[in-house]
Write a protein that binds this DNA or RNA. Structure first.
Length: 515
RNA sequence: GCGGGAGUAGCUCAAUUGGUAGAGCUUCAGCCUUCCAAGCUGAUUGUUGAGGGUUCGAUUCCCUUCUCCCGCUCCA
């Protein structure tokens, strides 16, 4: 455990020291759970996004992309269920330090009343024997009626108080009912606090004319509301998908673990629209396809696993996570959800617009079912970065820190190094840089001994080093050093471009794990 | 939000009973060097997380606050 912790701390400080991730607004002490991507981080992140986009959009004839706005009509979030589901009244017990949802505590209390009714029924059934009429008993027995009334009154009052956001009354209700903490038995409660997981803001200049808005808590709704637009204008036939990448915002109560859980984060997701009844097969298909994508990066199959959800979200009929072994254990990296027709149907109701597809094969209209793949770009970044950071002990006993990023994703693909700073070697190196820079990201470095420069490039994750030496003057050849093996080969300058292109080509990487 | 730990240079860390901050690595300039960080010379960097208090004097003691890490909690 201490090792894990140490490793994670190394990841965080390496990310900062080598220009990948900085705490946001650091000169003001940072902002909780907000981070900035630095000069190298932005490249890595961009490359991951591109790798995903290529695999999901470009390589699928029936998947297209969009880029929806972060602001959406507020009714969107009523239809999606977020206004209800992302809005919890929470209360803490001061003695046990446990936190509960206030409404759940009260509902549990009402549940106990129902249990009492059941008890009465059983007792009566015993007493009356065969003559027992359950329906009549429930309607006439004064005790049962008392429990029922009480329960209904409690729920009504709670509903009204929550509606009015009268949280003091919710607390009063809990105190009046003498609800105790299930763990400690204590009735020592804090005030009820409303936690809204969505960030609110206002659209419009003046307070009177402005409109309350949310920053989107997920990108998916931007696709659902555009479903028909894309289907019609793109002449899409089911099954087809719409993909997008973009920022989403959640006001997490506790956001932690570096960039794993941030309040502002980027999703890469694809909604796949299918004929009702076929969702299960597509769900399985996408689980497989997405895992293959991960495996193509070569970070070891043993570091991935599926986690099938037993408790499903309000919209899903099946859901699984692809989990990755982060420095702090296996955690969710990507979600694959069978979302049914929940979202489209709900938007139909709220917007009073038909969101249906006419299926020419079946000759009928229907609301399509949706299978979603949704991956956190920041989590993918962390997965790759933390997995790539290694400390090696070499044969001579020295250690080297190397960031073994997949070459296809590395921010800088090659560093060009003159062996010494004289004899015309820098000039040749510069000319190589000038040539290669049209095709991929290269850098130049002449400072310090060449060995030190190699280690520097190792630490930032540059997969190739090209060294210009005195032989270059005679035969136009240079050495090409591979980061992971430290092996060097002698190649002609003219051959460099194709050699490296081959190693960093998305095509070659994506094909690695094709089924 | 609760409990525990921690904030000193870009990174890792020092500073003896309170006496106005140092080291290593890094970075930068130069020298020397024909291939895997540790050769030589020189240089930059800090309101010691922030604010307040006690004191002649605070990195050190007290209070407040912010941030990070771990656990609990929460998590579509």
């Amino acid at each position: 455990m201490a090792n894990q912790e140490d490793q994670f701390k190394k990841v965080i400080s390496h990310a900062k020291e080598y220009g990948y991730v900085f705490p946001s607004s650091e000169i003001y002490d940072g902002l909780s759970a907000v981070y900035d991507y630095a000069q190298n981080g932005v490249e890595l992140k961009r490359n991951i996004r591109e790798y995903w986009w290529k695999a999901m959009v470009q390589m699928h004839e029936n998947i297209v992309g969009i880029d929806a706005a972060i602001f959406m009509h507020p009714t969107t979030w009523k239809a999606s269920g977020h206004v209800d589901a992302f809005n919890d009244p929470l209360i803490d017990n001061k003695d046990s330090k446990k936190r509960y949802r206030a409404d759940v505590l009260i509902e549990d209390y009402v549940g106990k009343l129902d249990a009492k009714i059941d008890k009465e029924v059983k007792k009566a059934a015993k007493r009356f024997g065969d003559a027992f009429d359950k329906a009549q008993f429930l309607e006439t027995n004064p005790r049962v009626l008392g429990y029922k009334e009480k329960g209904a009154a409690i729920l009504k009052r709670m509903g009204q108080s929550l509606e009015k956001e009268d949280l003091a009354d919710v607390k009063a209700l809990i105190e009046e009912l003498e609800i105790a903490c299930p763990l400690s038995g204590s009735k020592n409660w804090t005030d009820v606090k409303q936690f809204n997981l969505m960030f609110g803001t206002r659209l419009g200049a003046t307070a009177e004319s402005s409109m309350e808005l949310y920053l989107r808590p997920e990108t998916a709704q931007g696709i659902f509301v555009n479903f028909l637009n894309v289907q019609k204008t793109g002449r899409m036939k089911i099954p087809f998908g719409i993909a997008q990448t973009g920022k989403a915002f959640r006001n997490e109560i506790v956001a932690r673990q570096f960039i794993f859980r941030m309040r502002e984060f980027e999703q890469m997701e694809m909604q796949f629209f299918v004929r009702p009844g076929t969702q299960k097969a597509w769900y399985e298909q996408w689980k497989k396809t997405r895992l293959q994508w991960h495996l193509s990066l070569g970070m070891g199959a043993e570091n991935y696993r599926f986690h099938d959800h037993e408790k499903l979200a309000h919209y899903a009929d099946a859901a699984a996570d692809i989990e990755f072994k982060f420095p702090f254990g296996f955690k969710e990296l990507e979600g694959i959800h069978s979302r049914t027709d929940f979202d489209l149907s709900s938007h139909e109701k709220y917007a009073s617009k038909k969101l249906q597809y006419f299926d020419p094969e079946l000759n009928e209209r229907y609301v399509p079912y949706v299978v979603e793949t949704s991956i956190g770009l920041d989590r993918m970044f962390l997965a790759i970065f933390s997995h790539s950071l290694k400390e090696e002990t070499l044969e001579n006993g020295s250690t080297r820190t190397v960031l073994q990023l997949p070459a296809v994703l590395a921010p800088t693909k090659a560093a060009v190094l003159p062996l010494v700073k004289k004899d015309g070697l820098p000039e040749i190196a510069r000319s190589i840089v000038a040539d290669l820079t049209w095709d991929f990201a290269v850098t130049y470095d002449e400072k310090d001994a060449v060995g030190r420069r190699y280690r520097r490039q190792d630490a930032v994750g540059t997969p190739f080093c090209i060294t210009v030496d005195h032989d270059t003057l005679n035969d136009d050849s240079v050495t090409l050093r591979h980061r992971d093996t430290m092996v060097q080969t002698r190649v002609k300058i003219a051959a460099l471009k194709d050699l490296i292109k081959e190693e960093i080509s998305m095509k070659n990487w994506l094909q690695k794990c094709a089924q």
